[in-house]
Amino acid sequence: MEPDNKIARHVAIIMDGNGRWAKRKHLPRAMGHRKGVEAVRELVRSLKHTEIECLTLYAFSSENWKRPEDEVDDLMNLMRKFIKSDLPEFIANDVKLHILGDWRGLAPDIVAMLEDALEQTSGGSRTLAVALNYGAQAEIAAAARSAAEQGSITEEAIEANLYTAGLPPLDLLIRTSGEVRLSNFLLWQAAYAEMIFTEVLWPDFTFAHLQDALDQFAGRERRFGGR
């Protein structure tokens, strides 16, 4: 059976605008990040009302280490709290956690928490993929090296060695906050993905915004290079 090209099975989001949200409200950047986590929580809860099989979120890029140390520390602490508080909800809602990136390079306690979360959610039927310490160019280079070690470097071999191996092909990529670029995110996977760039800052992004993006996706004609 041919796939229904009107249904986005795999949606990825570049969650941008936490800092600007806080600045507009004359709040510390940390408050923007905390509000951003709340937006993630509400979106994950809403997945059961969609036909999305995999939601991929760009949480922390390999370039984000260049940010001020106190901001990075706050982001890591938010990650700890989120995993601890939301893991039972993931399990209850049949959500499987998947990590993209060099996440084993994070703090040992975070690595241990993620390993536990991956194990406890392994039976989930719907996937939340989180990009942590992730960069697409490094991902492609590593996949090419692995393909070379295994034999021929073909498109299929590279794809089989990406962090997204086993996930549905990327259908829709959304970026919030009005920025129009991919920022080293899912460069290979986005080759034929539909893209939507919205002015909405990430902390203000709701299920209604996601549904609007899904409706836009359903109205597009996907040719995959054909006519």
Rank of each mutant, 00 (worst) to 15 (best):
D73W: 12
D74C: 09
M76T: 05
N77P: 15
N77S: 15
N77G: 15
L78S: 14
M79W: 08
M79Y: 09
M79D: 13
R80Q: 03
K81N: 11
I83C: 05
I83N: 13
K84Q: 08
K84E: 07
K84W: 01
S85P: 14
D86V: 09
D86Q: 13
L87W: 12
P88E: 08
P88V: 12
A92P: 09
A92Q: 08
N93M: 06
N93P: 00
D94H: 13
V95G: 14
K96D: 04
L97N: 03
H98R: 10
H98N: 10
I99R: 01
L100F: 10
G101N: 03
G101F: 05
D102I: 04
W103P: 04
W103Y: 14
R104I: 11
G105K: 03
G105Y: 00
A107R: 14
A107V: 12
D109F: 02
I110Y: 04
V111K: 01
V111R: 15
V111F: 10
A112G: 11
A112H: 09
M113E: 11
L114D: 03
L114G: 07
L114C: 04
D116V: 00
A117I: 02
A117N: 13
E119K: 04
Q120M: 06
Q120L: 05
S122Y: 02
S122I: 03
G123R: 04
G124Y: 02
S125E: 05
S125Y: 03
S125F: 04
S125V: 05
R126Q: 13
R126I: 11
T127S: 01
T127P: 00
L128T: 13
A129V: 01
A129D: 05
V130G: 01
A131Y: 00
A131G: 06
A131T: 00
N133A: 00
N133I: 04
Y134N: 05
Y134F: 02
Q137L: 04
A138F: 11
E139G: 10
E139M: 01
A141K: 13
A141L: 11
A142G: 12
A143L: 04
A144V: 06
A144K: 00
R145S: 07
A147P: 08
A147M: 02
A148C: 06
A148H: 05
E149N: 12
Q150R: 15
Q150V: 05
G151A: 08
G151E: 12
S152E: 15
I153Q: 13
T154K: 05
E155K: 14
E156Y: 08
E156D: 14
A157D: 06
I158P: 14
E159V: 07
N161P: 06
